[in-house]
Structures are given as structure tokens and as C-alpha cells.
Design a protein around this nucleic acid. Sequence first.
DNA 1: GTTCTAACA
DNA 2: TGTTAGCA
Length: 133
Amino acid sequence: MTQATFGIGDLAREFGVTTRAIRFYEDQGMIAPRREGQRRVFQPRDRTRLKLILRGRRLGFSLAEIGEIVDLYEAPAGEAAQLKLLLDRIAARRAELKAKRRDLNASLDDLDAAAKNCRKRLKEMENGRSGKS
DNA sequence: GTTCTAACA
DNA sequence: TGTTAGCA
């Protein structure tokens, strides 16, 4: 069975990060594990947040940005006004990510073009020519 | 052995 | 963030 709680070492091993990094994220207010005396006790939800944090890191977001984004996933406060505000923020974030995706696709295309150019020159060299005139 | 805080590279 | 020190 999937355990109900985790120690900092468990999560560090599972996600391949140092315990130091996890404590750092806590200092930054991105996760708030329960305490048992001084020991940190992580609930499944903390584990999920950590997973989101690491994904954000892979996407190149600053820790501050990741903190804002992760908060968007958390349960809303309940007030209609707050829910609407949250929707606005989510929409804004989605727009940013889509823009980022477009840039990624453009970069991918550029790299593809560069690779094709390399192959072309390579073929020319193999044919005994010097490439460009 | 493991986790904790704090401070320094 | 990594590392290290001194505790519990």
C-alpha cells in the first residue's frame, strides 16, 4: 500500500533531489509539511506539490513563479469573487505557457533546419566537394 | 543511521 | 543550492 506519510529522506530518494533542496522549498513557502516535534512529516498532498515544483523547475520557472503556479492548483477559498480571480490567474498562466510552447516549437524547428544543413554539408564533403563554392 | 538548524563557499 | 558542523 501507498503509505500515508513520508519522511524527508523518502521524498528525496523518490524524486532524486537532496533533502537540502526540499528544506529550501519549504523556506520559500512552497510546501508546508506537518511537524512531529522537529521532524517534517509529509502528507500525500505535500508529495504532489513537490512533484509539481520539480516539474516547474524542469520547465525553467523561477522558484517564485513555481510557488505562484502551484498555488493555482490548490483548493479554492469558496468565495465567488475569489474563484473568479483564480480563474483569471489560471487563464493568464495558461496563456504564458502557450506562448512558451510556441517558442519551444520554433526553437525545435530552427534546430531541425540546422541539422539538415549539417547533413547536407556532410554529404557534400563525402562526395569530394568542398561544400560552398 | 537519520533529521534538524544554521552558516559559509 | 551544496556542504559542513554539532545536536537530538
